[in-house]
Design a protein around this nucleic acid. Structure first.
Lengths: 339, 339
DNA sequence: CGATTAATAGAAATCGATTTCACAATCAAT
DNA sequence: ATTGATTGTGAAATCGATTTCTATTAATCG
């Protein structure tokens, strides 16, 4: 199907040297006579030679590929990070593969198998499950890993993300200080570290201030817009009493909540206050402007890229290199003060 | 560095057959005795064998990789499309590489060279330049291509996108019908087909209604938020008269415009009406809600994926397969009626 | 001046699969 | 019974690079 390409053999034949010499000129990793080198370089240019990465990678057991594995690359949180990684890696000769688990550990497993069979050089991953995501094969194969956003239980690996417990605690306290007592939460998936820690932060703040948690105001939104929308819609239809404030555990669910509340004519913040873990796109142009903590995804992406490159260059896995980034509190007008 | 892997040779030795037979079992493309087959499959399972894609790809001159090359994968327009493509391709055994040109033809060229040396199986591309983007090498190598969103002059290739001229014309006419006569435009890059066609659509509508175009209200935003922001900021500082309405040629520039107008206390729509080619994220929750045409990126992505898969399966390039998708007019409250 | 070292370069092995070729054995058909 | 087609298999070539060995020449050293 594909037309024949210029190979090292052609260059060798053309210049009358061996492919070994051509390779040495190409990689500049072994002394080659200056005249020979010139001749070879000239031939490469003339024949428009481009080394075949697949062949090179087979021999050297590399791929010059780095993967980012996340729940959904459509989430601007991850997209930003992916872009940063790509910016950093491209100049170093790597391409980025983006993989979507759709929050499914099964698909995640498939992805990892596939990447291993590609001799993937490094991966950044936001694990779909803090207990069951299996990175052992990657670790055995000595593939550099960076955990992004989410951690894995009892596993020491480089991590870049925020202090979810602390931030969730602060956000909840913000509501409490505004006088709220009936505070609900839209949880993400509790089998991710972020989902769990944010929920724990919320509980801690409630406990600390002697507030009880009402089961009926704990919603499971699975970190997905649609799920959050659905679960709230269902609740609204019951006609049960609403909490006075709601803490949404990520940007997607916040959007789902805003949509359904708008449709149900529940005014934010008059009828219900809302805070969000994670900013929405175009945050500052929305109404209401949601009060939230925002993560600096550009910075996170850069740090992830640095940790990846570090390991790639030093050809060894880092075990421990947590980078906890500060999140920024973004006041909006989605929280009403209660007297 | 990496630990030794189970190879075909191991399976062959373990079962006492040749690697040829193992390969035949693996690919199921040649008759193999049922007993032998069982034995080999059992061995594969027992030794946890996974075929090495790099080796396979070298021999078969493939890569099982598909690339999407766009200006900036952070743009939700492209991210949506990329996710769709990934969804479709992953189940067929492909991984998606995302590449960012940052609107630079030079970087784009580098990217294409790199992908070629990877034996890339197919690419979807939104060319950075309608004249100078060079796909000839890809075409020579018979790599399936799908143009996304943007076309290339005088080149017949499968395309999925919208009728930019028509939609731009309609949008402008919408403003005109609302009574606007002083209508400015924030252009994208005019050396892309979308940038050019949208500008032409605007001009056509203006001409058709006997309206003159004032040079000072033609802004160059280069399809980038920051550029649009900067160019408008500069204009605002001159204190020159503003148009009564502004047509922004893509989502990013619309955002830049909204930001700078807000900062400059130019109220939309009271002081200035704004329409946008392309929706913003969280459109429906913004204020003002921008009147715009929105493209169905999910549908576009699916069509791109289908065209890619079609070519991959039939192992031949399509030359002509334009899919012009309908855009949806989204009325907002960002346009004031002028009497 | 003989011996060790450095520079230079080719032949051949290698990475891990697929595929061609050759060849036996089996089966059907004339 | 001879021919021809089909099944089943392995040895070896191949994909296009890198790397190890080996060898030659030139340079340096004691």
């Amino acid at each position: 199907m594909k037309s024949k390409n210029v190979t090292m053999k052609d260059i060798a034949k053309y210049t009358g040297v061996s492919t070994a010499t051509v390779s040495r000129v190409l990689n500049d990793n072994y002394p080659v006579n200056i005249e020979t080198k010139k001749k070879v370089l000239k031939a490469m240019k003339e024949l428009n030679y481009e080394p075949n990465l697949v062949a090179r990678n087979l021999r050297s057991r590399k791929s010059n590929l780095v993967a980012i594995i996340v729940a959904d690359i459509k989430n601007p949180y991850y997209t930003n990070i992916a872009k940063q990684i790509d910016d950093y890696l491209f100049t170093e000769g790597y391409n980025l593969i983006t993989c979507n688990t759709d929050e499914s550990p099964k698909k995640e497993k498939e992805i990892i198998r596939m990447l291993l069979s590609r001799n993937i050089d490094a991966i950044a991953i936001a694990p779909s499950d803090s207990q069951n995501t299996d990175l052992s094969e990657l670790i055995n194969q000595n593939v550099p890993i960076v955990l992004v956003d989410r951690k894995i239980k009892d596993l020491q690996l480089p991590f870049v993300g925020t202090d979810n417990f602390k931030e969730a605690c602060s956000l909840t306290e913000f509501l409490i200080k505004k006088g709220h007592k009936k505070i609900g939460i839209i949880n993400g998936t509790l089998n991710t570290s972020t989902g769990e820690e944010r929920f724990l932060g919320y509980k801690k703040a409630m406990e600390d201030h002697g507030l009880s948690i009402d089961e009926k105001w704990i919603y499971n939104g699975g970190f997905e817009e649609k799920k959050a929308y659905d679960v709230l819609k269902q609740f609204l239809q019951t006609g049960d009493e609403l909490p006075t404030a709601l803490f949404s555990c990520n940007n997607l669910m916040t959007k789902g909540a805003m949509k359904v509340l708008k449709e149900g004519n529940v005014n934010i913040p008059d009828d219900l206050s809302l805070i969000s873990f994670g900013a929405l796109a175009n945050q500052d142009l929305m109404c209401p402007r949601i009060t939230c903590v925002e993560q600096d995804t550009t910075y996170i992406g850069r740090k992830v890229a640095e940790l990846l490159l570090d390991q790639l260059k030093n050809k060894k896995q880092l075990k421990n290199a947590s980078i906890i980034t500060e999140s920024i509190f973004m006041p909006g007008n989605s929280v009403k003060e209660i007297l």
